[in-house]
Write a protein that binds this DNA or RNA. Structure first.
Lengths: 230, 230
DNA sequence: CAGTGGTCTAGACCACCAG
DNA sequence: TGGTGGTCTAGACCACTGA
């Protein structure tokens, strides 16, 4: 429960919005008025309202004030942990097998996603992550060897490429997308399931300033569900 | 650019972490020390460090201090707009068709997800959302009539149930999850695709205090991709 | 117990922008 | 130009928890 301090005020204001005190599109009283009403410092009100703004409930503008959003966007914060952590926090034992590790030219769609002009050599990795010795997630990764040459010496049998890259390229920025895909033969076999089984997939592209580092697709086991905590 | 105030300090600390000043697993100086070093109030340092914690870069514990995370988790913020907004912002024209609208008892798994003890009557809606007259998303929704009795009089042909609920029954909380599912016959037909086609699905349950309002599953058209902006 | 982060206060200055 | 939110300050008290 968030029953103390600015959280309590945030909850209270949210309740009043939900109760219809301030219908969508209308303005909430100013921070100063609310501070008087709640008998607290303006800073505390400010913090509560900033939280509500971050959650997509209200919009705030200087001079104008704080307005209840007409259509409340749903903002979800999703934490994508390292798979090992994910497994261990679920109480399982983690392991992984490298199924493929070879250096070669990239297929055109991968090269395009990594903004590679020339025909760079990439490290192609396929890894199965296991939870309690059962298939958990299948990883298909391309690493730009130019950006991270030392990847070729990494002990990828004992540490996953993901964790290794996080250590070597901690500044990475990137994009992430989620899709549903049909299991191709190789992946289906790895999961011991049927071809065309729907799989939840995450695709990440990360770069460091202008250096594109890696493109990875992770296919989770059938039935996987990504939860969010609003 | 975030070149002023606590953001600048956040950036500076992040740079120093990346530069190796404080390797993963080690502790950052305390807020008081950093405040001295940066020549600002402790509150400002606190804010910068809280931001880094929220971003998954550091872990903070009372008494212990602030530690650089061994493995940096990826935190993504996902904004799920109203479907109409989603379509219109993509430059398309929006429309929707109500395929089913009936009141009746809930199947047990729906009743369970809405925490309904008795055999409440629920409004069951199936809606196809269109973009440029093409199927875009299929919505399967159950509404707790007890919590929102006026839903029965809503003009759901002209306004989608989603938008109507947002206006009439602001919610305070909810959960959201993402999965990949195989299209069942009805949905496949609605999308004019094959049975068992993988579809990206979002399930949302929302409530207001103790009143459970609605359970909705939205199946997006084949190939749909949810993007995040880190 | 002592030191850390979590939070609140009261006051201040500033950037912004609708009127 | 006045009122709004954005942010900072200096100080304070508290909750937690490692030693």
């Amino acid at each position: 429960m968030s029953a103390y301090g600015f959280r309590k005020i945030r909850d209270s204001i949210l309740d009043r919005i939900a109760a219809g005190d301030w219908p969508p599109g209308t303005f909430i009283p100013s921070e100063i008025e609310l501070a008087k009403e709640y008998g607290c410092a303006r800073t505390t009100i400010n913090r509560a309202l900033q939280k509500l703004a971050q959650e997509g409930v209200v919009e705030r503008k200087r001079r104008a004030g704080t307005r209840v959003k007409e259509v409340r966007s749903r903002v979800a914060s999703i934490e994508i942990p390292i798979i090992r952590t994910q497994v261990e926090e679920a109480g399982g034992t983690y392991d992984h097998h490298v199924l493929l590790s070879e250096v070669g030219p990239a297929p055109s769609h991968i090269a395009a996603s990594l903004r590679l002009q020339e025909e760079n050599e990439l490290l192609h990795l396929k890894t199965m992550h296991l939870m309690n010795d059962q298939p958990y997630a299948f990883e298909d990764r391309w690493v730009n060897v130019d950006a991270v040459p030392s990847i070729l010496q990494a002990p990828l049998d004992s540490i996953s490429a993901n964790e290794w890259l996080v250590r070597e390229a901690p500044y990475s920025d990137g994009t992430m997308s989620f899709t549903a895909v049909a299991a191709e033969r190789e992946v289906a076999k790895a999961f011991n399931t049927n071809v065309n089984e729907p799989l939840f997939a995450v695709e990440r592209i990360t770069w460091n300033n202008d250096k594109y580092i890696t493109n990875v697709r992770i296919f989770y086991k059938p039935g996987y569900r990504l939860l969010t905590y609003v």
